[in-house]
Nucleic acid binder design. Structure first.
Lengths: 228, 228
DNA sequence: GACGGAATCTAACAGCCCTTAGATGGACGC
DNA sequence: GCGTCCATCTAAGGGCTGTTAGATTCCGTC
């Protein structure tokens, strides 16, 4: 907990580098992002990066770490700011909206994380796993509480459900471009509506998952059948 | 419509290269996939690739093209195989299940597409756009029919809804690893259940989207507030 | 205003990987 | 059996990019 008195020059530059790296990694992918691009965006020469970071991997590792930290902080703030009589479901709603906001407009770090976590060297990814697990456990607690409160269905595999939700939300930064008639707020609202209630019209009877069985009983095509 | 008499040796090798490329692009990303890896997986030398493909870009372009073609074919087959009295919603369900299957187990091409389409050079992506638009229009037709039939809510932006669904489904190949107790079929079922009905427990009254408004009225933090 | 460390720049190296050209091998028809 | 075209291999080049070491500039302090 260092005193945030006045940021030293080195700290300022380091911050500019990180911001630039998050932006470049987000738009170019991991292997596609060149250190020369990052340095240029930060307003320094390529070699100067090595005064602040030991290597390219150390830089990306820090970006990934911040990507989760920013998302988690924003979500926790949104959840924590709810009135004390908020239900467990209210908390889940707030978390979904906050996570969507982070992906869409708040943070290059978080969208960079979603974008490149699957491309990064194995050891970098492994070291980032603890952050992911922590964040995942936070969400699991939110969801479990809502299940216990009878507000979220109890026939869901919460891990699978969470990953499906993250997929829908994290993917937004790949296709969403703000323009007239389709704001980030609209996307967040629709995401919340679909994840909570689905696309089907509401029905009166309780909803159960259909007994699992292959669509019309066909087997998936074999490898040799699907070329072309 | 060339007669598929006997595949020539060149065609066989070309197919092996494409299969290998799909697998490598899927697992390594676009920039991370080396031609030497692809060649090795196809059982040939790196230079020999150029007898079959003009360049690395031409190869990835073909993989992307097939990625959509395979998905579309599998989905259309599943939908087309439904009994003639199937409702518009039944068709949407079949499409969701089929799309999930493709991502999870059927095709390296389709998961490679989801994985690398955002990393590929701009002109390759632009040339792939027509395939994407065609496939998107197919889905739009399915969804619109279900909306007209009163089986899917009419308060959704169908483009946004479709992209959220694709996000949830396409992301599965990033995190799903089949193991005991969590089969691809389970994931597909859960995805279908969540996308159709959401995670919230069913309610008796018709569901409406809540009036849009910021969670607890806070504004998103500014850039200077979120460093750390 | 000179000293010294912090911060940045410059220039070059080294490795990787796409690409190419020419050589080599193999299958099939005559 | 021989020639011809198809398919593949081998080896080298050339560009790009991460990394490093030493030179240089900035800036607060005495």
């Amino acid at each position: 907990m260092a005193a945030p008195s006045r940021p030293t020059k080195s700290e300022l530059t380091r911050q500019r580098i990180l911001d630039a790296a998050a932006k470049i990694f987000r738009s170019e992918g991991y292997s596609g992002a060149r250190l020369s691009d990052i340095a240029a965006a930060a307003g320094i020469q390529t070699g100067s990066l090595y005064y602040h970071f030991e290597s390219r991997e150390a830089l990306v590792e820090q970006v990934l770490h911040l990507g989760i930290a920013v998302a988690r902080q924003h979500v926790e703030e949104a959840v924590g700011a709810l009135p004390s009589d908020a239900t467990a479901l209210d908390r889940v709603k707030a978390a979904i909206l906050a996570h969507t906001e982070v992906q869409l407009e708040i943070s290059d770090y978080s969208s960079a994380h979603a974008r490149i976590i699957g491309q990064v060297p194995a050891d970098v990814r492994r070291r980032n796993l603890v952050d992911q697990i922590n964040y995942g456990e936070y969400w699991d607690a939110l969801l479990k509480a809502a299940v216990s409160a009878g507000q979220i269905r109890d026939d869901l595999d919460l891990y699978v459900a969470r990953m499906l939700m993250f997929g829908a939300l994290n993917w937004t930064s790949e296709w969403f471009r703000p323009r007239a008639g389709r704001s980030a707020q609209l996307v967040a609202d629709q995401a919340l509506a679909i994840l909570l209630h689905g696309v089907e019209v509401a029905r009166a009877e309780p909803i159960r998952v259909a007994p699992r069985r292959h669509v019309n009983g066909r087997r998936p095509p074999t490898k040799s059948e699907r070329r072309g």
